[in-house]
Every structure is written in C-alpha cells, then in structure tokens.
Amino acid sequence: MSADGLVTHASPYGPRETMDRLEAEVTAKGLQVFARIDHAAGAAEVGLSLRPTEVLIFGSAKAGTPLMQSVQFIGIDLPLRALVWQDASGAAWLSYNDPAWLAARHGVPGDMAVLGNMSALPAAVTKAATAPSS
C-alpha cells in the first residue's frame, strides 16, 4: 500500500465512522469542506459494486492561495483530499497526499512558511480521526 507521496493510516473504525470523524476534525480546525464524494454510491448508481470508498476535499484559501501564487499549477492538487477506503478484508484505511510531496512535485520553493502548517494539518486530523476511543 505505498505510492509516492501517499500517507496511509489504519483506522480502528469502519469506513463511514472514519470519514465522519475526519470531517468533524477538519471542521473543528476551521477548514472548509468543499465536497464529500461517495465513490461506492456512484458505482451503485450504475449497477457496479465497490467497497466503501469516500473522498473528502477540504482546505483553506489562506493556506492554498500563497502556494498557487508561487506555482499556479499546484492548484491541480489543491484543495487537499483524503480518501477513506475499505480493503478486501474489511479493514478501514485513511490516505492522503503529503503536502510536502505535492510542493516538491510542483517545485514550490521550500522556504514558504505556509508549507509547514499545511504539512502538519492532514497528519493532525488523520491522527485524531483514527485514534482509538479511550
């Protein structure tokens, strides 16, 4: 389960609960949720089956705009996205593109202050969304 720039964490929750928890964490951080896309529902609408697979698109213009001002075509990868999916054994996973990898991919200068915060954000919301209940 490795791909360049992709960070993946196991979740102790089912896919729906994992996504709900992620969306709640993103919102609690004051970020905007742009869309929640249910790929499995889309597949079902055309008579196909797909294990639970949802994408959350989220971000902040305050963080993303300086990156696009520097290298405009990074906009193809912004806002940030997280994927919650279920594997064949029934385990739930949460994956996202590492913002530092995205910045390197597009040649964003490494001295941009926004990169540190943007890189820490998906790690923090993912950790919180997949943390076992106490």
Rank of each mutant, 00 (worst) to 15 (best):
M118K: 01
I57Y: 06
G14E: 11
R21V: 06
V46F: 01
V7E: 15
V55H: 07
P99G: 03
G110V: 07
M19K: 08
Y13Q: 07
H9D: 08
T126C: 06
D77L: 02
A41K: 14
V33D: 11
V108L: 02
S49H: 01
R36C: 05
A28R: 12
V108Q: 00
I57L: 15
V7Y: 09
K62H: 11
D87Q: 12
A41S: 14
V71Q: 14
Q69P: 02
V114M: 00
P122R: 05
L83M: 08
K29I: 01
F58I: 00
K62S: 13
A113V: 11
A128D: 10
L121V: 03
R36K: 12
H9T: 12
A128R: 10
F34C: 12
G47F: 00
A120S: 14
G30R: 02
D98F: 04
V114E: 08
V7R: 15
A35K: 02
N117M: 10
P99D: 04
V84P: 05
S11I: 13
E25K: 06
Y96E: 05
A104E: 15
M118F: 01
T65D: 02
M112G: 13
A24G: 02
S2I: 10
W93C: 01
A131Y: 06
S49P: 00
A3M: 15
M19L: 13
M68I: 06
S2T: 15
L83C: 05
A104P: 04
